[in-house]
């Protein structure tokens, strides 16, 4: 019994240590944003990786999400004779909630995992030690471009996701269910307000920081992982990073929504 309580205590301490370490990591990355020289080309590379290369998956998933939403809403709304409001329903749920969340999930799956594994392998190959010994800060040189690229890319990806989702809803609503296209667009225009858009952008920026932070930090501290090393540790931290960033992101989503709605 006593041993179990002891173990619980030990786990708690480890968790808090992890959290503290990751917090310090994030503050170091943020404070390195303005230190010179700035790696502009690295930033471009990361935008191409995080943003531009995510376009196909964002376009596809956005389109299908919008189409499914339209189908679902139609099935419910037809009973109330409120199908005219389908545009509003589809766009509101996309812009406020599904757009930022689904985009972040897609980026976590595609970019978060890759970034975490890449950084963990760099750690294993002593690349960070090498950078430190060359008096080049790994935070400035490796982390800052990734953080900034995520902060720039996510709002853009989210807007594209929203738009393509609305378009998907239009396809189903207008061509499949015979709604009037004008009405669809008109209700969107009436229902989406500036504060909905603000929500989309605030959420996507917060999610960007969360997902890239957790991916980078988990990879960066791979050598502190207990009981595993080498390739196994890389696999383990990558899994952890994906799970942790998805859950943290959804938790943050709830917090932000409850403040902004």
């Amino acid at each position: 019994m006593l041993a179990q309580i002891e173990r619980l205590g030990a786990t708690t301490i480890t968790r808090f240590e992890d959290l503290g370490r990751m917090g310090i990591f994030l503050s170091r990355v943020f404070s390195s944003i303005f230190s010179r020289p700035f790696g502009f080309r690295d930033l471009l590379k990361q935008i191409a990786f995080i943003g531009a290369s995510s376009m196909p998956i964002i376009l596809l998933s956005g389109l299908f999400t919008g189409m499914v939403l339209a189908l679902q809403f139609y099935a419910v709304m037809v009973d109330f004779g409120a199908v005219e409001l389908m545009g509003a329903a589809v766009s509101k749920s996309l812009v406020q909630e599904l757009g930022p969340v689904m985009t972040a999930l897609m980026v976590i799956a595609r970019v978060g995992s890759a970034t975490c594994a890449e950084i963990a392998i760099m750690r294993n190959e002593q690349q960070f030690d090498a950078l430190t010994c060359m008096a080049i800060s790994p935070y400035r040189f490796i982390m800052v471009p990734r953080l900034l690229a995520a902060i720039i890319s996510l709002p853009i990806l989210t807007s594209i996701y929203n738009l393509i989702g609305i378009f998907g809803g239009y396809l189903v609503g207008v061509y499949l269910k015979g709604l009037s296209g004008m009405a669809y667009m008109q209700t969107i225009e009436n229902s989406i307000t500036w504060s909905d858009l603000k929500m989309t952008f605030i959420k996507s920026i917060i999610f960007a920081v969360i997902l890239i932070w957790i991916a980078m930090a988990k990879g960066f501290f791979v050598h502190l992982e207990k009981g595993v090393s080498g390739a196994e540790a890389v696999g383990k931290v990558t899994t952890k990073a994906v799970v942790a960033s998805a859950i943290t992101m959804l938790f943050a989503d709830y917090i932000v929504s409850s403040f902004l709605i």
Binding site: I47, S159, I188, L197, T200
Partner: peptide, 18 residues
């Protein structure tokens, strides 16, 4: 990517939200 993205942000802000 940036041009395409900015265009969609603008479109969302202007056309959709009125």
């Amino acid at each position: 990517f940036i041009v395409f993205g900015t265009a969609s942000i603008l479109y969302l802000s202007v056309a959709v939200s009125g």
